[in-house]
């Protein structure tokens, strides 16, 4: 039964001394899907991932990765997985190329150098430069390439787009989708809802060490939360905006500007604003914590 799942955890518990990080996490990730693992900082995303790879040992529950218990055979699990850590650190004096050679040797030489060079080109990375001379974003690109380079059956990516500019973020998300097309399963953690929505088939939401919800990504789209600040050329009556579905007026300033919160699609607000002399329109993405507070007020806390 568990062979249909790339990842399956039941009642996963992990403590660090007296601090309990995971309180019985249940997850099922089907083979071949992109699973978004969403949660604010400190929610337990990285701890869950590290239990999957057995770089930390679980205190309770069961874990199966590609049908193997990582506690019993961690080497076999890691051979099937490409991993990008959330806090990526690498030897500062080594070049990207040397690191790829080292990681490739640790994997028994499974990587294809043509594929490495192709990814480096797509991500605009010079692999001949020492890590210490690279920006945070370029270091992240090395991390991305080393995770993909041996075409693993399962990719576990902990905040893969962290530190990348928007264009490169899109390129990494394309790599993720291509890997899925090639048959890989992707377990992808993030604290950015939009990025999960862009690629994931299914989303698991974790908060304070507990899974709050596992849902199809499409069901989250209607729950997206945005904040918009609109400035007008002259004073207008913004009361009508409050009647638009999903829009809540948070504040306004003498009718020359208004800040609203929009649940779901922005279409209604945009159409309503068409009748106003808009000078400036600025959207802000609220923090995941704010989204959680909005949607999971009666949750586990």
């Amino acid at each position: 039964m568990s062979e249909t799942f790339a990842i399956k955890t039941e009642g996963l518990i992990k403590s660090y001394g007296s601090f309990q990080a995971l309180y019985g996490v249940d997850l099922e990730v089907q083979k071949g899907e992109i699973f978004g693992f969403l949660g604010p900082n400190g929610a337990g995303k990285t701890t869950t991932i590290r239990c999957l790879l057995d770089t930390i040992h679980r205190n309770g529950g069961s874990v199966s990765v590609m049908g193997i218990d990582p506690l019993k055979d961690p080497v076999a699990v890691r051979a099937l997985v490409g991993y990008l850590p959330g806090e990526l650190s690498m030897e500062a004096n080594q070049t990207g190329e040397k690191l790829f050679r080292y990681f490739n040797q640790l994997r028994g030489g499974k990587a294809e150098w043509d594929y490495i060079r192709e990814m480096a080109k797509r991500l605009d990375l010079d692999i001949k430069r020492p890590v210490k001379t690279l920006s945070h974003g370029n270091k992240q690109k090395i991390g991305v390439i080393q995770a993909f380079m041996h075409r693993p059956e399962l990719l576990i990516l902990d905040e893969p787009t962290s530190g990348l500019d928007p264009l490169m973020q899109q390129e990494v998300l394309r790599l993720v989708e291509e890997a899925q097309s090639d048959g890989a399963t992707i377990f992808f953690s993030s604290h950015i809802m939009g990025e999960i929505q862009a690629v994931a088939d299914k989303v698991g939401i974790i908060r304070a060490g507990r899974i709050i919800e596992v849902a199809e990504t499409s069901s989250l789209i209607g729950r997206s939360l945005n904040r918009a600040t609109v400035r007008f050329k002259q004073s207008v009556d913004v009361a009508s905006l409050a009647n638009v579905q999903g829009v809540t007026v948070l504040g306004h300033d003498d009718g020359t500007s208004v800040t609203v919160q929009v649940e779901g699609e922005m279409d209604g607000l945009i159409k309503a604003l068409a009748g106003f002399p808009v000078l400036d329109f600025e959207t802000q993405r609220p923090s995941l914590e704010e989204i959680f507070l909005a949607y999971y007020k009666d949750g586990t806390d």
Partner: peptide, 14 residues
């Protein structure tokens, strides 16, 4: 302490 062990230990080595 410098964080590099996490990535190395996630490779298929005991």
């Amino acid at each position: 302490e410098n964080g590099t062990l996490d990535l190395v230990a996630a490779h298929p080595i005991s």
